[in-house]
Nucleic acid binder design. Structure first.
Lengths: 342, 342
DNA sequence: AACTCATTTGTAAGCGCTTACATTGATAAT
DNA sequence: ATTATCAATGTAAGCGCTTACAAATGAGTT
């Protein structure tokens, strides 16, 4: 019959089933508003034509996409993977699809991606961290796209957030470090510019120091991208310092893993000679040698809760409630008292 | 002025600039088909209204979405992250957006996702591995969506593929293992059902054994999901065997990392008492202790090349050419000759 | 029997954009 | 002066779907 080679449309199905397009649409979207007999006929046509509704057309018609966008700094390492997976799982349960893109920690790229996602009709957006040009929030406002911040908890910020208190978490870890007897602390932080999580973690350490009323007002601090090799490099530099720090706290587990690798290369034994700590408690933390003492972040819980809240916002059931996720220090083997010799 | 609260449309811009919608559209899509003066006026209107074109509308009008979909088995660990990142980077360079979703190694879920992506108007699809119901390929055919397989290379398969020869790669590694003197080999494989990569890797080992003309026709084999804990578990079971294997080859680095962790817990020293090998050479491989002897897969290269080829297919410049990516064994410390004592 | 009301289905408008085609006005060629 | 040509812009159809509203049908009420 020289059938048209292109994909079947609602119209084709309607013709095949001998009904109107409206009826077909109803069969697909609210089956109970159509009588059993016709529904069967329509469904059969759908089957035999292998019809798949055109999403763009649907979006245009209903002005909803059932899509949530997420812009994460990177997909390259595992930091965001677990939380995002949970986010997606919960979203799917609620009937939404996740669109992910990564900004490579570049604010300009992030802006671009936000625009793209909005243009694509995302019903809501998940953003990582609060630090962002106000203009972006304005844009989101104007386009009426609900958005939520994760990986950070700041109830007073512009946007609601589902996350954890980075500074407090790190502060707690620092307290343990101090309690172990360390006084010469060094820090390998992620790049703090435009990254409120990294900033807060540094601040957390300062806070702990202050609280102890110690004379230590400053400590060696290296900022570097969240990459294993960078962590290794930074560690080497720190070890060249005189006096050498007795503990190297790291902005996350990836940096810590790098530090550990370098320690091994330099024949510096951890934790006997130098202690190392991480942050995140990703899988890596339990695998490296020695296993990392780090801050455990319940990423999955965070992901799920963020999804629930964002969906509630999208569906108009919430105006955006912030949720604080509790972290805790997990003690493994990379932190021990400093060497006795002074 | 009681401005409409909803997002501005092409029409709004047109009015604001005092031109027709066609002209605005041209300014945005083919600026040279419009005179400088009007363009400026239009662009200004775009700016001041903070206009973002509606993607769905555009897709409907041009029947192209400049979107590529990818369905990967999991985002939960790093196996696919690097390659996918490279895939995305190259795609962006060519003006396409990537939509990722994960199937959790579930064929049914994958089918679902494929339909979703097609409905969303993906111009092309990236699939992992060849093993798949023919019905799916039929569906893709019917919807005229070009698709490409990655992480596997099989020039004779239904779909073109950009990947590597899993069986040959593993065979080469097995040869090294044999050359080191091992005869009691055990394998921790991923689940082979519906996973041609896992199957091929097992086959590669069998091949190596056969080629050596050895009497070893079978070897202990445990299939388990690609998770660290599962790798650890499997390793423990293998160590309980009598006679105990002198080497445990693993289906990928994640399983190997688990094996290593368990070895440490059991106080079995690697490689002195038992050797362990991985596959993939993800970052993890260099960090664990001892560092893994494994198969290096140039994931980034694969990602980029897959993107290039798929875009070429989408743009009608190619009918689908398969590309083989070369892997090589990287020698680190987890593989050594078996203990001398027999 | 006449009427009301609910249920099922159909009709057609409209979502925001692109683009084939029509129109306009200016310049060049005759 | 007249006409052909071309560049810049406008007009309007249509992409595939949903849904407000209308129409038709049938059951229950009085």
């Amino acid at each position: 019959m020289g059938k048209n080679r292109s994909a079947p449309t609602l119209n084709d199905v309607a013709k095949a089933a001998g009904v109107s397009t409206a009826t077909v649409s109803r069969c697909l979207n609210s089956p109970d508003r159509v009588i059993e007999a016709t529904r069967q006929r329509v469904m059969q046509a759908v089957e035999s034509l292998r019809y798949t509704p055109n999403f763009a057309a649907r979006v245009m018609a209903v002005k909803r996409s059932f899509t949530i966008g997420a812009i994460i700094p990177t997909m390259d390492n595992a930091i965001f993977a677990r939380g995002l997976q949970a986010f997606q799982d919960q979203l799917r349960e609620d009937g939404y699809t996740l669109l992910v893109s990564s900004s490579a920690y570049d604010p300009e790229a992030e802006r671009e991606q936000i625009r793209t996602l909005v243009a694509r009709g995302a019903d809501g957006l998940l953003l990582i961290g609060h630090a962002r040009e106000p203009e972006i929030y304005e844009y989101l406002e104007r386009h009426q796209v609900p958005s939520l911040v994760a990986w950070s908890f700041e109830p007073d910020a512009t946007k609601p957030s589902v996350g954890f208190n980075n500074s407090e978490a790190m502060c707690e870890l620092a307290r343990r470090v101090l309690a172990a007897g360390h006084r010469r602390i060094a820090l390998i932080s992620g790049i703090t510019k435009g990254n409120d999580r990294a900033q807060a973690r540094v601040a957390g350490i300062q806070q702990a120091l202050l609280a102890e009323g110690l004379a230590i007002k400053k400590f060696p601090l290296i900022e570097t991208p969240y990459e294993i090799d960078k962590g290794a490099e930074a560690f080497a530099r720190l070890m060249a310092l005189d006096p050498r720090p007795t503990v190297v706290m790291c902005g996350n587990d990836v940096l810590a893993a790098g530090a550990l690798r370098e320690a091994q290369r330099l024949n510096i034994s951890v934790p006997e000679q130098v202690s190392v700590t991480g942050f995140d408690d990703i899988e890596l933390a339990g695998i490296v040698h020695p296993a990392l003492t780090t801050v455990h972040v319940p990423h999955r819980e965070m992901g799920r809760k963020a999804a629930r809240e964002l969906v509630a916002m999208v569906e108009g059931r919430s105006l955006g409630k912030s949720v604080c996720i509790n972290t805790h220090v997990v003690t493994r083997h990379s932190l021990a008292p400093p060497p006795a010799a002074e």
